[in-house]
Design a protein around this nucleic acid. Structure first.
Lengths: 113, 113
DNA sequence: TTTAATGCATCAAGAATCTATGTATTTTTT
DNA sequence: AAAAAATACATAGATTCTTGATGCATTAAA
């Protein structure tokens, strides 16, 4: 098992959570923030991050504010109302899942022996 | 997000954990056990389960004992030594990941605001 | 008797991530 | 001043995993 396998299905939820907390963020910043909050254990690759952001945008969960910094462009992502609703639902589901899995893999677990 | 997306990367670890706890199990039994331990929240489909078992077998993490029940066949899976080692490593990694993600999505989390 | 449950299995499709690659600017180090 | 690292966006192909659908067959329950 590669650690990265475990992130599957959680990335978009993490992004929505961050946007909810911070108000607005750009891609690179999101990757750095996830890396920092996970103490370096979760490092999102660009090939995962940008497609995920584009999908969130296409689905209407976020919108992008384009800011020109000299010649460089920066896309700040913001939550939409739809994204806020989605974030709440996703977080609830993720937390419940984490709770369920945690109980199943806890060292002392032998529920039905 | 579909709930089922979240299971990705955890299924083989769950299977190894169950085999470690129970000694031996057959496919259908594993699916039922996961369903039961998760209070019905995680329901593994055959299309996920059997390929996962076959992969674990091909990788030498489990071996299959074939038992004939009348005309029906049943494949009991057992952990190999390699599988035991893998199980320990996978569980450690999964637990750490769960801990990390949990702290990131906990409601009060605003680590770097 | 017919439906549900048990028990194995595979295949095509869909979804998500990764690696690799590309472009370009800005900051830091040598 | 030059080189290296960090910043910042993006895409394409490959890989991996789960799903839904399907199939076969036996046994238990309605």
């Amino acid at each position: 098992m590669k650690h990265s396998e475990l992130i599957k299905g959680t990335l978009s939820t993490l992004i929505l959570k961050l946007l909810e907390d911070k108000g607005k963020m750009y891609g690179y910043e999101i990757a750095q923030e996830i890396k920092e909050q996970s103490s370096g254990k979760i490092q999102i690759k660009e090939g995962s991050l940008y497609p995920a952001l584009h999908k969130l945008e296409a689905d209407g969960h976020v919108w992008a504010e384009e800011v020109f910094l000299g010649k460089r462009i920066r896309r700040y992502y913001h939550l939409t109302q739809k994204g806020k609703t989605q974030s709440t639902a996703d977080l609830n589901e993720l937390r419940q899942f984490l709770s369920t899995i945690s109980s199943m893999v806890s060292p002392q677990n032998m529920l039905t022996s």
